[in-house]
């Protein structure tokens, strides 16, 4: 293989005019983190709501929850990105569609919403599994004490269900973080997109993607460490 290694490339000025290639990757990392965190907020709350709906006695709530999950987890994420970014503005009334297209940082907002809705369907399934793993008597005990359905979920079921699903939820968080790279297809300048442009400008493909890989792994390790602290922090004395 005839390849011209140049690890010093990161400290050379990028053709963008401001800063080095390292700065370019760093700005990509910041967009990745911002997208991951914002979409996770949507995914967590919407996913919890949908997951809870699928455990309620109401048939209507069940149907809505099931429809949501099956819609959003059965369409490829890449296709969903395109639908949100290219198709949705055309379906809206013209003025609203134009406003969406002209929105500053539109790829970021679209990426956040798309990822949030997609990951929510996966979070919903985790939440449902967590709730259904609890003994049936817990719900009964809460109900028998006079809690409303909402109170039973708030004070009894969810605190226990979230503890049960903390490990798979960590995986979902990591998936969500890595899935931000799909948003490069709608023009979000996140880490992978930045590594690609570095490769196109400098032809140093190995250096660029080695750096991106290491950064992803490092960020994920930080998340895993934080999650294990969280797990220890919320562990209930005397359980298991």
């Amino acid at each position: 293989m005839n390849y011209n290694w140049n690890w010093g490339i990161f400290f050379e000025a990028s053709p963008e005019g401001t800063g080095t290639y390292a700065d370019m990757l760093l700005s990509g990392l910041l967009w990745t983190i911002a997208t991951a965190l914002c979409s996770w907020i949507i995914a967590f709350f919407l996913g919890s709501l949908v997951g809870v709906m699928r455990t309620l006695p109401s048939k209507a709530a069940n149907a809505v929850g099931t429809a949501y999950v099956e819609l959003f987890r059965n369409i490829p994420l890449l296709v969903q990105m395109f639908l949100w970014y290219f198709v949705l503005p055309e379906l809206l009334p013209q003025s609203l569609g134009n406003a969406l297209k002209q929105l500053p940082n539109a790829p970021f907002y679209t990426g956040v919403v798309c990822l949030g809705f997609f990951t929510a369907s996966r979070v919903a399934e985790q939440v449902r599994a967590g709730i259904q793993s609890l003994p049936r008597g817990q719900k009964m005990a809460g109900t028998a004490m006079g809690f409303t359905v909402a109170q039973t979920y708030r004070y009894v079921i969810l605190p226990n269900a979230y503890r049960v699903i903390l490990p798979p939820m960590t995986s979902e968080f990591l998936n969500n973080l890595k899935n931000t790279s799909v948003a490069l297809t709608i023009g979000l300048l996140e880490l992978t997109a930045r590594a690609r442009s570095m490769q196109e400008f400098s032809f140093q493909v190995f250096e660029a993607f080695t750096a991106a890989t290491l950064i992803y792994v490092l960020v994920n390790l930080v998340v895993i460490t934080a999650a294990s602290f969280l797990e220890r922090g919320v562990a209930v004395p005397g359980q298991r």
Binding site: P135, Q138, V156
Partner: peptide, 13 residues
């Protein structure tokens, strides 16, 4: 109406 269950059902957390 107080109720006591076979499996206690204290809230573990």
């Amino acid at each position: 109406v107080g109720m006591v269950f076979q499996h206690f059902e204290l809230f573990p957390h």
